[in-house]
């Protein structure tokens, strides 16, 4: 574990806590894409299967359990909780996220490290996570004024993978033959998708004005 990876995990944890705070306390999911939340639940479900087959550390296991629990809880709140679901703007959250799942799965069948059930699912989860934020970014462009909590949620979610990139660079230079092309490229694509959002987020923060993404 290095400081970059810890910062990344804490940023990821914080982003989810922000979203849970928003949904649980003000019982609102306005501006949040259910499709992105469903994609993330699928990402964690296909990536963290190894909590049943192996043990790496208490930290690793606890974080995986939290990510699994929180992602499915958020999806449940947005689909079935009768107060929260009313604030979900269904007609704006129209990104066809099913069109992301199949290509990622096919790509995982073609490009992977080992052709085993767990490895292909794990690779699928990496590709899917890279694009999972797309429905949320599209929704942010449509909902004119983004509320602060949602903006911060997306920012820390993007920041987590950016820290991971620093972590991979650090590990590349400090560990023998440490390389993970598939993980690295997926992580770079994922972070690149946030570039535009980061620009407008920092700009709104510096001008202390509301976050607005151009349509």
């Amino acid at each position: 574990m290095n400081i970059f990876r810890l910062a990344g995990d804490m940023s990821h944890l914080f982003s989810i806590l922000l979203l849970l705070l928003k949904i649980h306390t003000i019982k609102s999911c306005a501006g949040v894409s259910l499709k992105t939340q469903e994609l993330y639940a699928l990402v964690f479900a296909t990536r963290y299967l190894d909590i049943f087959t192996g043990y790496i550390s208490l930290y690793n296991t606890l974080m995986k359990m939290f990510f699994l629990w929180s992602s499915f809880t958020i999806v449940w709140y947005m689909r079935y909780h009768n107060v929260v679901r009313r604030s979900y703007d269904k007609d704006q959250d129209t990104f066809r996220h099913y069109f992301l799942i199949l290509p990622c799965f096919i790509l995982a069948l073609l490009v992977h490290e080992k052709f085993t059930f767990l490895e292909v699912l794990w690779t699928f989860s990496l590709y899917l996570e890279a694009v999972a934020i797309l429905p949320q970014l599209v929704l942010l462009q449509r909902t004119r004024n983004v509320d602060n909590l949602t903006g911060h949620y997306v920012f820390f979610l993007g920041a987590y993978r950016s820290f991971y990139i620093l972590n991979w660079i650090y590990r590349y230079f400090t560990e023998q033959n440490y390389y993970k092309w598939i993980t690295w490229i997926s992580g770079l694509v994922q972070t690149a998708l946030y570039a535009d959002f980061f620009y407008y987020y920092v700009k709104s923060w510096r001008n202390s004005e509301r976050l607005q993404l151009p349509a």
Partner: peptide, 10 residues
């Protein structure tokens, strides 16, 4: 450090 194989990252 953990070997290249193990998936020690989240």
């Amino acid at each position: 450090e953990v070997s290249h194989e193990a998936k020690d990252e989240l």
